[in-house]
Amino acid sequence: MTNPATTPSGQPLGISHKPSKTRAMFDDFRKRDEPAFIGYLPYGFPDSEYSLKAFDTMVRHGVNAVEIGLPYSDPVMDGPVIQAASKIAIDNGERIADVFKAVETVANAGGVPLVMSYWNLIFHYGVERFATDFENAGGAGIITPDLIPDEAGEWIEASDRHGLDRIFLVSPDTSDERLRIVAANARGFVYAASRMGVTGERTTLSASPERLVARTRDAGAQNVCVGIGVSTPEQGAQVGSYADGVIVGSALVHTLLDDSARTPKPLDEGLSALAAKTEELAEGIHNARH
């Protein structure tokens, strides 16, 4: 059987020359002097069909790129809201092989599909297999919060073969040398975590993400997006005034949960709340510089 990473004669496949969908999105927004709005939801929450409708709703109400989260049983970076949502998805039997339906849903709605995943999930699925399936579904890139460029050789090769974006994370504590390594190996954008610690909604944001964006650009990154803690239109506008993209997760996930933050709202109620929150955030983010 032919290795999917080789030609029929056994030669390694070359580098894809497909343009980056994510970079193209940022180029369009740069012409309008606007930041992009990137929204996160875990796939399979509250269940598969509900989540597909939620992804479609996000794009149709103002999200430009969607981070499709792969629920994981040991999410070291996720705060309580996303952990609760991920547990619901896992308990409902979410499977990694089904996530490509979500990728297709986002692409068909006109958004840029990204996957956010801890590396262990992709490694066990098979790096080349995941890259192939993700590309075929219309995917743009993968955000890997626990994978550093130094240990990403297999992923760098696979993403080059399939024309996929590699999105690594940096934080305010990242050294200038490390920023240069990330910028040199990233494709699409660099994810700047606004602070150390887990995800979650915050009432205020510090000045550290603005400094981090400037440092990451100085290190060679073309596009830098800020996430972790952004939950209001005002915070979105604050971050959007200097970042290429604003990433919102917990605040969107929260709209699909009831007051206990543990039980999903009924479908129509949840999607209505998600649409309203998305529009509110989109207005703040897209008008950040106007």
Score class of each variant (00 low, 15 high):
residue 74 D to Q: 06
residue 4 P to H: 02
residue 124 H to G: 10
residue 154 E to G: 11
residue 105 T to N: 01
residue 212 L to M: 08
residue 92 N to P: 03
residue 248 V to T: 04
residue 168 F to N: 07
residue 174 T to P: 03
residue 171 S to K: 11
residue 155 W to L: 12
residue 89 A to C: 08
residue 132 T to K: 13
residue 227 G to R: 08
residue 182 V to G: 01
residue 163 G to Y: 02
residue 189 F to A: 02
residue 44 G to S: 07
residue 186 A to E: 12
residue 19 P to S: 12
residue 74 D to Y: 05
residue 9 S to V: 07
residue 200 G to T: 03
residue 87 K to F: 11
residue 162 H to A: 13
residue 196 M to P: 01
residue 139 G to I: 05
residue 267 L to I: 13
residue 127 V to M: 00
residue 46 P to I: 10
residue 63 V to A: 13
residue 88 I to W: 01
residue 68 I to A: 01
residue 252 L to A: 04
residue 31 K to A: 13
residue 48 S to C: 14
residue 6 T to Q: 14
residue 33 D to W: 11
residue 130 F to R: 02
residue 165 D to V: 03
residue 74 D to P: 00
residue 231 S to Y: 05
residue 276 A to S: 13
residue 244 D to V: 05
residue 91 D to C: 10
residue 12 P to L: 07
residue 254 H to C: 05
residue 273 A to S: 15
residue 186 A to G: 03
residue 40 Y to C: 03
residue 2 T to Q: 12
residue 64 N to M: 03
residue 212 L to K: 01
residue 155 W to C: 02
residue 104 E to P: 05
residue 125 Y to N: 05
residue 73 S to V: 08
residue 208 S to C: 12
residue 263 T to V: 05
residue 171 S to F: 12
residue 226 V to H: 04
residue 275 A to M: 01
residue 265 K to M: 13
residue 116 M to P: 08
residue 208 S to N: 14
residue 116 M to W: 08
residue 84 A to M: 10
residue 266 P to G: 09
residue 10 G to K: 11
residue 57 T to S: 03
residue 123 F to Y: 15
residue 25 M to H: 03
residue 145 P to V: 06
residue 139 G to C: 07
residue 36 A to L: 02
residue 215 R to Q: 02
residue 167 I to M: 07
residue 75 P to W: 00
residue 166 R to N: 10
residue 6 T to K: 10
residue 73 S to D: 05
residue 278 T to C: 08
residue 237 A to S: 08
residue 92 N to D: 15
residue 154 E to V: 14
residue 28 D to M: 12
residue 163 G to R: 04
residue 7 T to G: 07
residue 98 D to E: 15
residue 179 L to G: 09
residue 241 S to C: 04
residue 170 V to C: 09
residue 106 V to R: 06
residue 268 D to H: 11
residue 25 M to P: 04
residue 20 S to Q: 04
residue 122 I to N: 02
residue 134 F to G: 07
residue 38 I to P: 06
residue 89 A to P: 05
residue 159 S to R: 06
residue 282 A to E: 04
residue 257 L to W: 02
residue 123 F to W: 14
residue 265 K to Q: 13
residue 8 P to E: 01
residue 175 S to P: 11
residue 36 A to K: 02
residue 149 P to F: 01
residue 117 S to I: 04
residue 191 Y to F: 06
residue 211 R to H: 13
residue 151 E to S: 10
residue 243 A to T: 04
residue 97 A to Y: 06
residue 155 W to Y: 13
residue 40 Y to H: 11
residue 97 A to D: 15
residue 17 H to A: 12
residue 263 T to Y: 10
residue 279 E to M: 12
residue 238 Q to Y: 14
residue 264 P to K: 11
residue 208 S to A: 15
residue 256 L to V: 09
residue 91 D to L: 10
residue 74 D to E: 04
residue 156 I to N: 03
residue 56 D to F: 09
residue 67 E to W: 02
residue 236 G to E: 01
residue 194 S to P: 07
residue 153 G to I: 13
residue 39 G to L: 00
residue 100 F to N: 09
residue 157 E to G: 11
residue 140 A to W: 07
residue 170 V to A: 10
residue 280 E to D: 08
residue 78 D to G: 06
residue 146 D to H: 03
residue 248 V to Q: 00
residue 159 S to H: 14
residue 50 Y to W: 10
residue 78 D to Y: 01
residue 153 G to Y: 15
residue 133 D to L: 00
residue 229 G to C: 09
residue 19 P to V: 09
residue 72 Y to S: 00
residue 125 Y to D: 08
residue 120 N to C: 06
residue 156 I to Q: 14
residue 284 G to H: 07
residue 147 L to I: 06
residue 240 G to S: 08
residue 119 W to Y: 15
residue 193 A to P: 08
